[in-house]
Design a protein around this nucleic acid. Sequence first.
DNA 1: GTCGTGAATTGACCCGCATCAAACAACTTT
DNA 2: AAAGTTGTTTGATGCGGGTCAATTCACGAC
Lengths: 226, 226
Amino acid sequence: MKTLRLTSSDRAILLNSRFFSRLPRTAAEAILEGAHVSTHEEHDTLFRQDDPIDDVLVVLSGLVRLYRLGKDGREADIAVFQKGEVIGVNTMFLDRRATANAQAAEPSIIARLESRKLHQLAAEDTGVAQALLELLCHHGKLTEDCLAEDRLLTAPQRVANYILSHCPIGSESFSFRLPFQKNVLAGKLGLAPEALSRAFSTLRQSGVVVKGRVIEIRDRQALEQF
Amino acid sequence: MKTLRLTSSDRAILLNSRFFSRLPRTAAEAILEGAHVSTHEEHDTLFRQDDPIDDVLVVLSGLVRLYRLGKDGREADIAVFQKGEVIGVNTMFLDRRATANAQAAEPSIIARLESRKLHQLAAEDTGVAQALLELLCHHGKLTEDCLAEDRLLTAPQRVANYILSHCPIGSESFSFRLPFQKNVLAGKLGLAPEALSRAFSTLRQSGVVVKGRVIEIRDRQALEQF
DNA sequence: GTCGTGAATTGACCCGCATCAAACAACTTT
DNA sequence: AAAGTTGTTTGATGCGGGTCAATTCACGAC
């Protein structure tokens, strides 16, 4: 891993991200001031549970998995972050210690923002605070969704849900490419890879065709009522 | 359900709550201005998923269960709120629609704060925003904890965890009274009531004695390593 | 105290998914 | 083309916990 300054394309990615685009421009600039960039290989650990955290991370490219460890060493994914998503805001307002482990799930480029500075800006500028509030609410909702899905849905239902969430409204049949390995998807859905595979083959009878990373949906209705 | 103004003891409960105590005093006063109170019987519904929400709720007494419904009518608890806890902040910064159902799990008294006003105060006063940020981070962490527990721990382990979280540090044996029905605890832990019961009887061999709502712990060590 | 009602427990059974092992497939490497 | 390497699928098996039914228990009303 090496640390660099931001390139102009890095800046562009950041400024277009969901979070930055809600930030007052001056604040966005101020935060970018102290930003650095690091590159990581697959399986690199970005931080570990209970580590003291001084930076907020933003994924510029690649994929980051956030997970907790059980006593027996098993891993439970809490969240998966893609390009433009922000990691570690929670930490900033708690005790500054990570509540989970973060690991690159593919080769990744990560922007690191000083959380002290961001925290301070939030204390000075309600626009910044507002953006953070929206970000946290959004994260919170995703986690809640996840929890509810775990408790209410079977494996094929979760997968059907995931597929539908990638389906443009109105279209009856369509196809898309998984944004990451099935491995990672399984973790995100709280499944073992084998269970994901079996779920896909169950869904075949509802018009889901899987070819490598490409998912094709032939009958949206059937999926919805699964 | 009937709606009233705040009594002075209501005010006291609010001002001592985790959230209000972090609020600038003037802001706290301002919010209390427009506050109302409602009383509810057990099983009363406070709001339903997708309902438009105009108030943030604070539990003055009793207990509120937040849950989602599955297609088949099964319920999955997202969170349980006790005295002094705040419900519906997420909603305020999203699309103002409830992401879950809320129901009184026992006879309850609820304070209702105008979320418009709170939102506005947050936009004017970074102190208010700060308090909200901390609140959201805290909620977020609890939900994450829940998700991780669901995925990593068996029923007896979750129960052991719950018990330990109520154990004052340092004491080797102690006892406490469950703050709500086992029913509710089961839901909170993502278990059927029967599973909770079985978990308790599994833990008996580790020195846990259950008498009605009172839990007695004889051997903390044994619990921790479960 | 007795009674009655809802909560909690226990037993029997079954389903979903984790786990382990092995076969396959898609890519690299040589 | 052959041999790894890594990701994915398939099969066999076992455990955890959900569900249904039947008691038993706890607690408030009387």
